[in-house]
């Protein structure tokens, strides 16, 4: 039986926690230290689907930027899923993420998308209002996550895997 595998790209402004989310998802680790990503990091993990199948998510953790240049667009090629990541403590990062989605849709054919609003552990400092997230949920699956504690991380990737396998 052919293995189901999908390329997923992590998109978001720098410092929103994309690499931390992947580390938590793939290796269940977390580091407080901020280490910028250059280019792309590729990891993979099998995710069990509700129907007992599994899907291998090949996760491309692309260096964070508020807008995609030609290099980043090149990384997107072949992807069928996007994990959009915003930092709840920086409302501007949410706008940047939505901008990245619009750019990505120019090069990808109807990708599966999940929006993650990260840093739930710092919720007291969040600038993103609950009403904003409620509004976004009308068009996108949105999961509040904390890469630090792991809250919502599995659920976010599981949701994306489910959409990719559908």
């Amino acid at each position: 039986m052919t293995e189901l595998a999908r390329k997923v790209c992590m998109l978001g402004d720098f410092g929103v926690g994309k690499t931390s989310l992947v580390s938590r998802f793939v290796r269940n680790t977390f580091s407080d230290k901020y280490l910028t990503t250059v280019g792309v990091k590729v990891d993979s993990k099998h995710v069990a689907l509700p129907d007992a199948r599994t899907v291998k998510l090949v996760v491309w953790d692309i260096a964070g930027k508020s807008a995609l240049d030609a290099l980043n667009l090149n990384y997107l090629r072949g992807a069928t899923g996007l994990m959009l990541v915003a930092d709840g403590t920086r409302e501007a990062s949410l706008r940047a993420t939505l901008n990245l989605l619009m750019q990505a849709r120019d090069v990808l054919d109807d990708p599966a998308v999940v929006l993650v609003v990260n840093k739930l552990d710092l919720v007291e400092r969040w600038q993103v209002a609950p009403a904003t997230i409620a509004e976004l949920r009308r068009t996108l699956p949105v999961v509040e996550t904390s890469a630090q504690s792991g809250d919502g991380v599995e659920a976010a990737f599981a949701e994306l895997a489910r959409k990719l396998a559908a």
Binding site: T37, S44, L71
Partner: peptide, 12 residues
């Protein structure tokens, strides 16, 4: 052509 790829094994 994919520049700057950090591979799963740790190489760049």
């Amino acid at each position: 052509d994919f520049p700057f790829v950090e591979l799963a094994g740790g190489g760049n």
